[in-house]
Design a protein around this nucleic acid. Structure first.
Length: 504
RNA sequence: GGCCCCUUCGACUAGCGGUUAGGUCACCGCCCUUUCAAGGCGGCGGCACGAGUUCGAAUCUCGUAGGGGUCACCA
């Protein structure tokens, strides 16, 4: 039997990091087994439906590289893949259950149910639908339905005994049937609830492994009764632990950033996100922490999934991302990722090596793609502002800068060793500490006090830019170092970030 | 509240009867050093608790506690 898994998000809003998490393991298992990975849209809630959402989810899956084998876009043999296009199927199946006596039509109004709930609460009785509709005779149900009376179809669940099922992460789970309610299968509006739709679709689509979040455990017994009512074979249930907020509650956008798009826009790499997500609940047998999707597929086994309750730690995600930026990606790969951000920020360059050198020297200083844009500004803007701390360094360094300007103008080739030697010799001649001279020079070259090594800066910027910048700094010193660019700094900064973010 | 799930350093985890309980993030210190990083080295810090089972429990069983999920005509 070929393994079939699926990711079944609801198009209700921003593509969620939990979708990526669950999608990852569904994708990986299907790949591992040479099976199929289905994308199905669970759009049965007309109130929460968001028309943009589907395309955005698809786009995020593509960004992550979790490409489905079947889905609304690419089609497949078991479609349609939007539940809203399968309404007839659900109605037919609900009727099958009606016919076999496993379900009944239920006519309570919202008010009736609210009154019931109030009463239950008042008496401290168990919450939920009490099955009162069961007692309405079958003929009466049909008569009222034919007369057009609004109603739902509910599953008739057992009142006692227990339902056991195997969860591949936790082992056997026993569920008292007394906890089961006669859950709505088909809503008043003719749309199915999740419970009916998921069971019908998973069966019809041949899903063999239901890999979903832990929050569904409490519905699984109900689903099993549906499978039984239809006389269908059970899939294997794999309930992944729920991702958590720092306070351990279920991950939510109220408490932290759950938006995939936002992570992309911050300059998080998809492979880093996936890698990090994989370490939440799964571990490599050899303890390796950094591995590719491919390596995960090759090594993956369900048995190594753990049932813990992992906190989604953005700091650690950033660490993973940084690791990819400076060690895992090659310089060329990295440059390909950074280039669009630079273009969006309005940076331009004629010399590809200049661009690559910048990426290389900034690499150990960045955690996200966006960090490059911010930190590289002075490489592309000769008119950069001097930050407050940098002005302080410049103010007492006129002599050094004049000497250095003279000496550097006599140096023909700016290779690393030459400028390094020149600098060292000069500093030695002045009998002062390196920082005394190099900090002002760094400030002159970048407008900042925190930047790459001065010799790197000189080498990368090259003679012309270096002399121009020292000259400019000297002018500024002569002018008393007025704070002449506060507007510009802000403006440039805003512009860069906004543009870079929008392009992602 | 009922039911279910979970429980190893602050966080993510390895461990599947005998280990000085290992790794990673974070944090701290040292080294490197012209700044900031990166990197190297080191440190801090944990088996929730209580009973059993066993020659021997982080590992098995039960209980307690804590955390979480769920009890919708939302998924």
């Amino acid at each position: 039997m070929t393994v079939v898994t699926r990711i079944a998000p609801s198009p209700t809003g921003d593509p969620h990091v939990g979708t990526a998490y669950v999608g990852l393991f569904n994708y990986v298992l299907a790949q591992k087994a040479g099976g199929r990975f289905i994308f199905r849209l669970e759009d049965t809630d007309r109130n929460r439906y968001n028309p943009d959402s589907e395309a955005r989810i698809v786009s995020m899956l593509r960004w992550l590289g979790l490409t489905p084998d079947e889905g609304p876009e690419m089609g497949g043999d078991r479609g349609p893949y939007r539940q809203s296009e399968r309404l007839d199927l659900y109605r037919q199946h609900a009727e099958m259950l009606l016919a076999s006596g496993h379900a009944y039509r239920s006519f309570e109004t919202t008010e009736d149910l609210e009154a019931m709930a109030r009463e239950q609460k008042w008496h401290g009785r168990p919450q939920g639908y009490d099955g009162r509709g069961r007692s309405v005779p079958r003929e009466e149900q049909e008569r009222r339905a034919s007369a057009g009376e609004a109603h739902v179809i509910r599953l008739r669940t057992p009142d006692d005994g227990e339902t056991t099922f195997k969860d591949s992460v936790r082992g056997t789970i026993r569920w008292p049937n007394s906890e089961l309610r006669d859950t709505v299968l088909l809503k008043r509006d003719g749309y199915p609830t999740y419970h009916l739709a998921v069971v019908v679709d998973d069966h019809l689509m041949g899903v063999t492994h239901v890999i979903r979040a832990e929050e569904w455990i409490s519905s699984t017994a109900l689903h099993i009764h549906l499978y039984r009512a239809f006389d269908w074979d059970l899939p294997l249930f794999v309930h992944l632990p729920l991702l958590r907020n720092p306070d351990k509650s279920k991950i939510s956008k109220r408490k932290m950033n759950t938006s995939l798009e936002s992570y992309r826009d911050q300059g998080i790499l998809p492979e880093a996100l996936l890698n990090y997500l994989a370490t939440l609940g799964w571990s490599m047998p050899d303890g390796r922490e950094f591995f590719s999707l491919k390596e995960l597929v090759d090594t993956f086994i369900l048995e190594r999934l753990s049932a813990g309750e992992p906190v989604f730690d953005i700091k650690k995600l950033r660490h993973f991302n940084a690791k990819y930026l400076r060690e895992i990606l090659s310089l060329d790969e990295l440059a390909d990722r950074v280039e669009p951000h630079f273009r969006a920020a309005g940076y331009s360059w004629d010399d590809e090596d200049y661009f690559l050198d910048i990426i290389d020297v900034l690499r150990p200083r960045t955690e996200t793609l966006n960090d490059f844009t911010e930190q590289a500004r002075y490489f592309f803007d000769n008119d950069f502002p001097y930050q407050e701390e940098a002005r302080k360094r410049l103010s007492s360094a006129q002599k050094y800068l004049e000497d250095l300007e003279r000496q550097l103008s006599m140096l023909e080739f700016y290779d690393y060793d030459s400028v390094e030697d020149l600098l060292r010799e000069y500093v030695q001649s002045q009998a002062v500490g390196m920082g005394k001279v190099l900090q002002p020079l760094r400030a002159a070259l970048t407008g900042r006090t925190q930047a790459p090594g001065v010799s790197d800066l000189l080498t990368i910027l090259g003679k012309q830019r270096v002399l121009q910048r020292i000259g400019r700094a000297l002018n500024a010193i002569n002018a008393g170092l007025p704070d002449d660019h506060p507007q510009k700094e802000k403006e440039t900064s805003d512009k860069g970030e906004r543009r870079a973010g929008a392009t992602g």
